[in-house]
């Protein structure tokens, strides 16, 4: 809200211009999504190339096909369980570590932070097979637990950066006051620091949730039971070697995206403050 602080009333031209710019970009951001929606509700094909994404012949058939595919409910449940668990486990692992990085100085801290950043730079192409070996050694193949363990740990480095930034911006005086009043370090962390970092925790959790919710290669490789598959894997199955059921794929995509959109909507007020707090400050 700050850059415009002090301007009392913008001229009409100016606000029209701002709205015009924003509306253009809103159109840019909705246009491809509108095409996905149009594909999802079109029966058959459109005769000509068109600018506006209007369905050819309106139909619910694709939606119905996706919704009535066998096991789809348990697969949706599986997706939610895996993603929520990923967010919870990821945050639980990242919180204390981020707090330590923000408040304590210890041997190996700098090296640890550098290593954490380094993990973000190595492309997944080369580390997928060894990861499978680790899961096998842990006896976690074919289980959702294994998937959650993978997702959660890969989301931890980014979560630590986020949360550490958030903790940095919380004044130390708060918890020191609590500790003077007799609280332990842990108690102060739980009762003073965590509530103050709530927006950042929510946003970090959302990121972890999303990365797990949208991933499919690892999920397809690890999971081995029809009912346990996550939705992106189910979606991907509509794309075959020679052809694809684009209508059903599109309908499924929309249904799969809805929960994330909803979450974004719920968290959106926190999104800005959460990110500022974390500020992805690194």
């Amino acid at each position: 809200m700050m850059s415009a602080a002090g301007e009392k009333k913008p001229s009409v031209i100016e606000s029209v211009l701002s709205h015009a710019v924003i509306v253009t970009l809103v159109a840019f951001s909705l246009y491809p999504v509108a095409w996905v929606i149009s594909t999802a509700f079109s029966a058959g094909s459109a005769p000509e190339r068109r600018i506006l994404p209007v369905p050819g012949h309106f139909t619910f058939a694709h939606v119905v096909e996706f919704v009535t595919s066998p096991h789809v409910l348990s697969q949706a449940g599986s997706s939610l369980v895996v993603s929520v668990a990923t967010a919870l486990v990821g945050i639980a692992i990242a919180l204390p570590a981020a707090y330590a990085l923000s408040r304590f100085s210890f041997v190996g801290k700098e090296a640890g932070v550098r290593l954490l950043l380094a993990t973000q730079m190595f492309p997944m192409v080369a580390s997928a097979v060894p990861l499978y070996m680790v899961l096998e050694a842990l006896g976690l193949l074919d289980t959702r637990t294994g998937l959650v363990v993978c997702y959660a740990t890969t989301s931890v480095p980014f979560a630590i950066f986020q949360l550490r930034g958030a903790f940095d911006s919380i004044p130390k005086d708060l918890e020191e006051a609590a500790m003077v009043d007799g609280a332990t370090r842990l108690g102060a962390f739980l009762r003073v620091v965590l509530p103050a970092a709530r927006p950042a925790i929510a946003v970090t959790g959302l990121f972890a949730f999303m990365s797990a919710y949208n991933e499919f290669i690892l999920a397809a490789t690890i999971l081995g039971k029809e009912e346990a598959l996550t939705l992106p894997v189910v979606l991907q199955r509509y794309v075959g070697e020679h052809d694809a059921q684009w209508g059903t794929f599109a309908a499924g995509s929309i249904l799969v995206s809805l929960p994330v959109m909803l979450l974004f909507y719920v968290v959106q007020r926190n999104l800005v403050s959460g990110l500022t707090q974390g500020g992805v400050k690194g």
Partner: peptide
């Protein structure tokens, strides 16, 4: 002096070490 801090980071180090660093190191 670092020991109390290690208590806060140990589990994260363990998890990232096994499931992030190890695969990357083997891949490299």
């Amino acid at each position: 002096r670092s020991i109390p801090a290690y208590a806060w980071v140990a589990h994260a180090a363990l998890a990232i070490g096994a499931l992030v660093f190890f695969p990357i190191a083997v891949g490299a």
